[in-house]
Design a protein around this nucleic acid. Structure first.
Length: 531
RNA sequence: UCCCGAGUAGCUCAGGUGGUAGAGCAGGUGACUGUUAAUCACCCUGUCGGGGGUUCGAGUCCCUCCUCGGGAGCCA
């Protein structure tokens, strides 16, 4: 818990007077102001306790530092990016000689214009014009153009430039200046260049068109490309916004098992040997466990990987994907849909607020995202079938919606839509029978706009012990395996609902990525197990 | 599993009706003081997915196998 604090927050604060430039000072001042209100809420005893748990507690300069720690811990971060230039404070703890340097990242360059700093990263492009040379480097936070002028450098440094290749890791030192011609609007007049790690001439990813198979074979390197970096950043923002959304609402994050006995959905399972217990399966859902946790904690959510062994070969499927599964005690299907809607609006709003640069890199039409506001239409399955038939679909009542049907239905709307109350035979055994129409169950699929398809599947759970047991028998499921699940209905049954949000599908939709495989760092598909 | 499609240089691809392979990019060398996927000159690069067949001769035609992509179903 506390180790998080000591390594990041302490280093983030400059100590030496030299490093305390005017920008940093004004930041400190405003931070002091904003955190003073919160300080009143912390008791003296709790401050003392917290200090005692921090390694190198003497480095905490003041209560303000400590409050900053809490500030960070509570996710109430100032707008991205947060950490700016800092004096290297790792050095005093290292056995190697201490060389004071001001390190900066590309994202923080606007804070250090006119200063001499060092930036570490990898060579993205190289250009040379005889006596002037350019390095475009990336450091994970952005691109920086570095300019080397021959007659302003020592011969050693100039010659070192000639040894650079794409992806060489380097440290460049020089003065930062605003430069409209440079990508990112800043560039560095280099005075020193250090090679940290060499790279041979055969780096496979070129700034040209590549086939998808080649790129996936080189996924570990493809990940360095600007578009992929932007995708991972948006994915991260979506994940964090989901955690924050549920944290703010008092939901408890519960981790459910990945290795399970046969339970859950009926579609393909990955299996593995499990000691003396026979076969274990990789989890297809945490939902059933989530229901147990909801009876203990009220409202919970899970956030973890899910494994489906179906031989799906489409742009919407992965064999390993990440799913968020909230489970809410005393929520009926309507309350659940309300929550789903608020969540999606919140996620999209957060990405728009904080990831404009990435959306631009991805060439996403943000007006499509700005249109994502509630309420989302809620269409009963039976009405949807009628609409689809009127539009020429061959669907008959009782069928699940096909991919074409989904696209047809969504075409009329700018926001996600809910399709509710499907026929019982099209859905899982644990969904609650619809009291108004027993042919159907209380459930909802949320279909994303622009043809991205189903991103959420949810339902109110069957809370009647005997009806649930009957459904387990009807489906021919092994009753033994569901004993503990039935117990949830035996000991104080309760109305509850939940849903599963597919993370990669959500990322694909929000970023406008046509294929889901780019929306996870290392996709697992039918024919893709490495890298 | 089913239906389409594709495998030629490191990468992206072109190679009418059969006559032992070509471009762009990347890489190398050189030129250039502001480049943005820099430009210019020269140089290097091949088990044409594997196997079999037809033929004097197959990247090209036939058979077969393999690999991969897209879609369907299943679902998030």
């Amino acid at each position: 818990m506390v180790w998080l604090i000591s390594s990041t927050a302490l280093r983030a604060r400059p100590t030496s007077t030299a490093a305390r430039n005017s920008t940093t000072r004004s930041r400190s001042a405003s931070r002091r102001k904003s955190s003073s209100a919160r300080s009143e809420r912390m008791s003296g005893a709790s401050i003392t306790r917290t200090i005692a748990t921090i390694p190198n507690a003497s480095r905490v300069r003041s209560v303000i530092d400590l409050l900053e720690v809490h500030h960070v811990r509570r996710h109430r971060l100032p707008p991205f990016p947060t950490i700016h230039t800092f004096r290297d404070r790792v050095a005093p703890f290292c056995p190697t000689p201490y060389v004071p340097k001001t390190y900066a990242t590309v994202a923080t360059l606007p804070k250090v214009v006119t200063q001499t700093v060092t930036v570490r990263g990898w060579v993205a492009h190289l250009r040379s014009s005889g006596k002037v040379a350019f390095i475009v480097m990336r450091d994970g936070t952005g691109l920086l153009q570095c300019v080397l002028v021959k007659n302003q450098l020592t011969p050693e440094v100039w010659e070192r430039f000639a040894t650079l290749t794409q992806e060489t890791s380097i440290a460049v030192t020089g003065e930062v200046r605003a430069e409209p011609r440079a990508p990112g609007g800043h560039e560095m007049g280099v005075t020193d260049l250090e090679v940290l790690g060499t790279s041979p001439h055969d780096y496979p990813i070129q700034p040209k068109e590549h086939g998808i198979d080649f790129l996936l074979d080189n996924r570990h390197l493809w990940l360095r490309s600007p578009r992929q970096v932007a995708l991972m950043r948006v994915r991260h923002e979506i994940e964090q916004s989901i955690h924050d959304f549920y944290y703010e609402r008092g939901f408890i994050h519960v981790d459910t098992p990945i290795l399970t006995a046969a339970i859950g959905e009926r579609s393909g399972l990955f299996s593995t040997e499990y000691f003396e217990e026979g076969t274990a399966y990789l989890a297809q859902t945490g939902q059933l466990y989530g229901e147990a946790a909801a009876a203990a904690l009220g409202c919970i959510y899970t956030f973890g990987p899910t494994f489906r062994a179906e031989k799906s070969k489409t742009r919407r499927h992965l064999t390993e994907f990440w799913m968020i599964e909230p489970e809410m005690a005393f929520y009926d299907t309507h309350a659940s849909m309300q929550l789903q809607e608020e969540m999606l609006v919140s996620i999209v709003g957060r990405v728009l607020e904080r990831r404009q640069a990435e959306l631009k890199e991805l060439e996403r039409d943000v007006s499509k995202l700005e249109a994502i506001q509630g309420p989302f239409p809620r269409i009963a399955y039976t009405d949807a079938v009628a609409t689809l038939q009127a539009k020429g679909s061959a669907i008959v009542w009782g069928d699940d919606l096909g991919a074409e049907d989904e696209t047809l239905l969504v075409a009329d709307y700018q926001t996600p839509i809910f399709v509710c109350n499907y026929p019982k035979q099209a859905k899982a055994f644990y969904m609650k029978e619809n009291p108004d129409d027993p042919r159907t169950v209380l459930c909802d699929d949320c279909l994303a706009p622009e043809g991205y398809g189903e991103i959420i599947g949810g339902s109110q759970r069957e809370d009647d012990h005997d009806k649930l047991l009957a459904r387990i028998h009807e489906e021919g499921l092994p009753v033994d395996a569901y004993g503990w699940y039935l117990d949830l209905r035996k000991y104080g049954t309760f109305v509850h609902s939940g849903f599963g949000l597919g993370l990669e599908r959500t990322v694909a939709w929000i970023t406008g990525t046509p294929h889901i495989r780019e929306c996870i760092a290392f996709p697992r598909m039918m024919h893709r197990l490495r890298p």
